[in-house]
Design a protein around this nucleic acid. Structure first.
Length: 303
DNA sequence: AATAGTGCCAACCGCCAGAGC
DNA sequence: GGCTCTGGCGGTTGGCACTAT
């Protein structure tokens, strides 16, 4: 957010600036990197004439100015991938971000904290608990799969240049002052995967050392990967006929259902509901469930 | 219209690991 | 081996924008 005032944005600690970046600083940084490349951040800051720490320059570049940084709402595919990878790796945000082209670790971390952890708070369970992990895998991920499969035509192309495909009302780029100046100043490097399916393919290729068993049921294309995942016998939401494998329900999925207004929740994660649950009839408002991240009907249940 | 509450996210902080000397 | 520098990471914070009352 360039050029916004902030109480501590004036110079302190000697000559170093802190707080929001100005448009002028952004331009300096972008032009310097365009000419000399990135790296050696402390030197870069000095030579570019920026009164910022190298760290601050690096962060500003990586999280905001870099041309291939994608802005706007996370797609269902991206959300699914975040949930899946987080269940696998935990808070390894940078590692997770490597598999989401154009997304930064900061953005993923923010998403997790503001959307997913909020849900755990509303359910009054620990976000790191088994119960919440089950909730994610039993309810959220299958729902996302439905969402993805329902709009399979738009499943794969998510290059930064294609951000117009994002839901316009929810595209955070609509915020003022949020347009990356570098996008118009620098060419796209074209490095790294540009689509989610490419990212998942790279996941298949590179993840075979550590926990590859979790991906035994993956395929190269995202749609087949996800449907394969849902069919995988080891998947927590393995489907038998049209019903969830009840083996997974042996786990304690107790949620204090007396803690919130059940009428207004749309979704109630109780064992009895789970037993009647089938993939096709989630008791949630289908219209906007994941369109707006986790923040709409389902996730706003406790407020 | 004013105020309070909440969501979101950019930016900062502290810690750590690796490289170079 | 110890020190310094640098970059990377995860956690946290502050403030703007939006929504509800």
């Amino acid at each position: 957010m360039p050029s916004l005032s902030k109480s501590f944005s004036s110079e302190d600690e000697g000559d170093l600036r802190r707080g929001p970046w100005t448009l002028e600083e952004d331009t300096l940084l972008v032009h310097y990197i365009a000419r000399h490349g990135e790296g050696r951040w402390n030197l870069l800051a000095k030579h570019a004439g920026l009164r910022r720490t190298g760290k601050s320059c690096r962060l500003r570049w990586l999280n905001y100015l870099k041309p291939d940084v994608k802005r706007g709402n996370l797609s269902p595919e991206e959300q699914w991938l975040i949930l899946e990878l987080h269940s696998k790796w935990g808070n390894r945000w940078s590692k997770i971000a490597q598999h989401l082209p154009g997304r930064t670790d900061n953005e993923i971390k923010n998403y997790w904290r503001t959307r997913v952890q909020k849900q755990a708070r509303h359910l009054k369970i620990d976000a790191n608990s088994t119960a919440f992990r089950d909730f994610i895998r039993l309810f959220c991920m299958p729902r996302l799969i439905q969402k993805i499969e329902g709009s399979s035509s738009s499943s794969s192309i998510m290059s930064p240049q294609n951000s117009s495909a994002l839901p316009p009302l929810l595209d955070s780029a609509s915020k003022p002052n949020s347009t990356p100046v570098a996008a118009s100043l620098l060419p796209n490097t074209g490095q790294g995967p540009s689509t989610l399916s490419e990212a998942i393919q790279s996941l298949d290729l590179h993840d075979q050392n550590s926990d590859s068993s979790e991906y035994n049921c993956t395929n190269s294309a995202i749609s087949s990967q996800i449907s394969q995942f849902s069919k995988c016998p080891t998947s927590p939401f393995h489907v038998i006929g049209n019903n969830v494998d009840h083996n997974i329900l042996g786990k304690d999925f107790s949620v204090d259902n007396g803690c919130y207004d059940m009428e207004s929740m749309n979704l109630v994660a109780t064992s009895s509901m789970v037993e009647n649950y089938s993939i096709g009839d989630f008791p949630v408002d289908d219209s906007n469930w994941f369109d707006s991240g986790f923040s709409d009907s389902l996730w706003n249940m406790g407020g």
